[in-house]
Design a protein around this nucleic acid. Structure first.
Ligand SMILES: [Mn+2]
Ligand SMILES: [Mn+2]
Ligand SMILES: [Mn+2]
Ligand SMILES: [Mn+2]
Lengths: 224, 224
DNA sequence: ATTAAATTTTAGATAAGACTAAAATATTGT
DNA sequence: ACAATATTTTAGTCTTATCTAAAATTTAAT
């Protein structure tokens, strides 16, 4: 297989990315319906594309059994994710965009084809390890620096940590976190946890705050 | 017509840009063949696209009589050119690309859709008036700052000026200019002009240099 | 073990953008 | 003026990426 600087279409790249993200959740092969939902398209369209990706040796596909990425497919997906996240850092760090504004633009920028561009952008940004949402940026070989992190919802009373990422990164959720004064790097401590509904009273900096279970399940923290 | 933030396809945008550039040369309507050559496509494909652009009120088209841009088409072309040139400035000024490396990448970046992105990029770059090749950058309304400039080939003996742009901006020509130590801002003086073939002996900084007519016809200077 | 329901695939259609070959129109040369 | 040439358009085909409707297969329920 060696090194292949093949260029793929916008659509192919988006499918690979979707499958990559779904593969992390699904234990078995990724289901056609799951891909269709993620891509906001129809299952029949997915089947067509999956066949094509299979032809190009980017996915393993057996009828009715879902798909998995091949090594080549995974590498390709990771370079797109790398580009996405680097561009997000650019938008936030250099152009002063807010973290809830960058995803849509990065969705476009991630498809720009130029190794040299990404290599220089990476240097320009100081070779960052994480994007504005706390997600790790794969290096040029597709290696991801894994870090210890837990969902805030898994902490017990009196445990504390630093917010290092969000699971959901919709604009709505990010804007809600702003209102709560929570962002990457914010110190959080669990003051109380309600048995009934999983809601929490937490210490954010010096102030108390009340958050729902749903919120706690979408915040990653690094415990100390 | 008012303000229309309609998004056009990659192909439509490229056609508009091509027609814009050809319109500056052609006195009459832009010929189908000319567009085909510029776009590296077939005349029949051009006819198809031109009909579509005409439907969308981006060009005026009468069978067999070539096309001209409408006001809407011209504005749209200018926003794409604005994006192209701003990205070129970014690539050279911020990522330290060389001026002969940026065009291809800018051809991709110019199609990213986001007003906010371009507005912020413009500010980040210091609202530049010219791109790395000396071409003017239209403002957000499509206004271009016109400057006095002549082709070096039109200067007479003993006239001098500052290089402010290139007509051709192929990588080959730009690399040749590097070898000749000529770039934007370089002071040039005509020491001699050969009647026979239009070649020139010029002063570049403190050194003499010999250039062909073809080279002189592709260099813009501002006389002092 | 059958039947019902959900999932997935196939078959056939559509739209965008490109192509080739042939027809229509315009331009040139004598 | 009229034939020869060049340009442009039309007609029909192809590819990519979608879609709908129907068939095939798997999974879940009785
Ligand atoms: Mn994102
Ligand atoms: Mn992100
Ligand atoms: Mn350029
Ligand atoms: Mn330029």
């Amino acid at each position: 297989m060696y090194f292949c600087f093949m260029k793929y279409s916008l659509s192919e790249e988006n499918y690979l990315k979707a499958i990559y993200h779904l593969e992390k959740i699904a234990a078995t092969g990724v289901a056609t319906n799951a891909i269709a939902e993620q891509m906001e398209t129809k299952p029949s369209s997915v089947t067509d594309m999956v066949k094509k990706l299979s032809e190009k040796d980017l996915v393993n596909y057996i009828k009715y059994q879902g798909v998995t990425l091949t090594e080549k497919g995974r590498k390709t997906a990771l370079t797109i994710i790398r580009k996405h996240r680097l561009w997000e850092v650019f938008l936030v760090d250099k152009l002063n965009f807010h973290w809830d504004q960058v995803h849509e633009i990065a969705e476009q920028l991630e498809h720009i084809h130029s190794e040299e561009l990404i290599s220089r952008l990476d240097k320009f940004l100081g070779e960052p390890d994480f994007d504005p949402h706390g997600d790790p940026i794969p290096d040029k070989h597709g290696n991801i620096k894994r870090t210890e992190k837990k969902l805030l919802s898994d902490l017990d009373k009196n445990q504390g940590g630093v917010c290092v990422g969000v699971k959901e990164s919709s604009a709505e959720f990010l804007q809600y976190l702003d209102k709560k004064k929570i962002t990457i790097g914010t110190k959080i401590k669990v003051l109380g946890k309600e048995f009934f509904d999983g809601s929490m009273v937490i210490l954010v900096g010096k102030d108390q705050s009340f958050i729902s279970k749903k919120t706690a399940e979408n915040l990653y923290v690094q415990t100390n």
